[in-house]
C-alpha cells in the first residue's frame, strides 16, 4: 500500500567516498538518468533506498491484515471478490518491492526478519483497526488515495527498479482507490444508517491518513538529501496539501463532514487550510503504542512461525530433487 515518510538516510559512509564518483553520480541523477542496480552509487543512497523500499514492502504486507479482517464478512459476493483481489494485489506489491530491494544487495529473509523483530518500520496507518465495513471503503478512498499521492512522484524516482515497480503499483492503487470510493458512494445512497457508518469511518481515518505523509517539513530533517537524489520529488507538506485539496471535494460529494473545525477554503491560495495534526499521536503510534501495533506484529510472527515447517519442506524437497538429478547424471556417465 504505502510507505510513510519515515525514511531516514545514512550519511556517515558518504564521507569516505571518492568525490569524483559522487559528483559523476549526482550529474547522472540531475540529468534524470535512471540508476540501475549494478551502477556505482553512494552508500547513503543505497541504504536510504533499501530502507524506504523495504518499509514500503512491509507496509503492503502488514496492510493485508486490517483489510483481510473483513474478507470473511464482506456483505456481498461481489464485494468479497473485490476485497480478496485487492488484498491479493497488496501481497503482489509486497513481492515486487522486496524484489526491488533485493537488487540492492539485501535478501527478503533479512528484511522479513527486520519486520518480525520490530526493528523495521511500516506505515503506521495499519496500526488502526477496521471496525466496520465502511472502514474497507475508507481505506481504499483515503489510505490508497494518500498512497497514490506519494507514489505517483516515485514513478520518476532515480532508482530504476523502484521507479518501474511504482508505475505498476500506481495503476493498481488507483483502481483500489476508486473501488473504495464507489463502495462508500453506494453506502451513503442506500440508507441513513449506512451513511452514519461511513461518516464514523471518515472521522476515525481522516487524521491518521494525513499523518501518512510524515512529519511537517520543518521537522523532517532528511527531505533535502532525498530530494537532491531524486528519490523524493515533493516535500511531505506539499503532498499532504495536494491530498487534502483533492479529497475534501470528494468528501462533500459523499455528503460527509471532514472532522476538522478549522477546515476552510482559501480563495486566494486556492488551497484548503486545515487544523493542527496531533503529532504526539503520530509519534506514539510510530513508537509502537497504537491500537493494533502488537496485534499486527503478532499476526505476522504467527504466520511466519506456523509456516516454518512448510518452507522447510519446500527447501528439503527441492534439495532432494537436485540430488536425484545429480545422482541420475552420475549413473548415466
Amino acid at each position: 500500500m504505502y510507505t510513510q515518510a519515515l525514511n531516514a538516510r545514512d550519511t556517515e559512509a558518504g564521507a569516505v567516498e571518492d568525490a569524483d564518483r559522487v559528483a559523476a553520480f549526482q550529474a547522472r541523477v540531475d540529468a534524470e538518468e535512471k540508476i540501475e542496480p549494478n551502477d556505482w552509487m553512494p552508500e547513503g543512497y543505497r541504504k536510504t533506498l533499501v530502507r524506504q523500499i523495504s518499509q514500503h514492502a512491509h507496509s503492503e504486507i502488514v496492510g493485508m491484515l486490517p483489510e483481510g479482517n473483513w474478507i470473511s464478512r464482506a456483505p456481498t459476493l461481489k464485494r468479497k471478490a473485490a476485497l480478496l483481489a485487492k488484498v491479493q494485489d497488496e501481497g503482489g506489491h509486497g513481492l515486487y518491492l522486496y524484489s526491488a530491494a533485493e537488487t540492492l544487495g539485501v535478501s527478503r529473509e533479512e528484511l522479513t526478519e527486520q519486520l518480525l523483530s520490530g526493528k523495521a518500520k511500516y506505515s503506521s496507518i495499519f496500526n488502526y483497526p477496521t471496525l466496520t465495513w465502511a472502514d474497507i471503503g475508507a481505506i481504499g478512498w483515503l489510505v490508497d488515495g494518500a498512497a497514490i499521492m506519494n507514489q505517483i512522484p516515485l514513478c520518476r524516482c532515480s532508482f530504476g527498479p523502484y521507479s518501474r515497480a511504482m508505475i505498476r503499483v500506481c495503476k493498481e492503487e488507483s483502481f483500489h482507490q476508486r473501488q473504495g470510493y464507489e463502495l462508500l458512494l453506494e453506502m451513503v445512497r442506500s440508507s441513513k444508517e449506512q451513511k452514519e457508518m461511513v461518516q464514523d469511518a471518515l472521522n476515525r481515518w481522516w487524521w491518521p491518513s494525513l499523518m501518512m505523509f510524515g512529519p511537517s517539513d520543518t521537522d523532517s530533517k532528511h527531505s533535502a538529501q532525498s530530494m537532491a537524489w531524486k528519490i523524493k520529488r515533493f516535500t511531505n507538506d506539499e503532498l499532504r496539501q495536494k491530498f487534502i485539496d483533492a479529497t475534501v471535494p470528494q468528501a462533500h460529494y459523499l455528503g460527509l463532514t471532514i472532522p476538522d473545525d478549522k477546515l476552510a477554503f482559501n480563495e486566494e491560495s486556492g488551497h484548503w487550510e486545515f487544523g493542527e495534526i496531533d503529532w504526539d499521536e503520530f509519534m506514539r503510534v510510530v513508537a509502537g503504542n497504537g491500537p493494533c501495533n502488537r496485534e499486527r506484529l503478532a499476526a505476522r510472527n504467527k504466520a511466519h512461525a506456523d509456516g516454518a515447517w512448510v518452507r522447510e519442506a519446500a527447501l528439503a524437497y527441492s534439495q532432494k530433487r537436485a540430488d536425484r538429478r545429480e545422482a541420475a547424471r552420475h549413473a548415466a556417465e
Binding site: I61, M64, G91, A303, G307
Partner: peptide
C-alpha cells in the same frame, strides 16, 4: 488464509 499463509507466494 489471506495474510496468514506460510509464504507470501501462498498468500497470493
Amino acid at each position: 488464509w489471506c495474510g496468514h499463509a506460510p509464504t507470501l507466494e501462498e498468500d497470493i
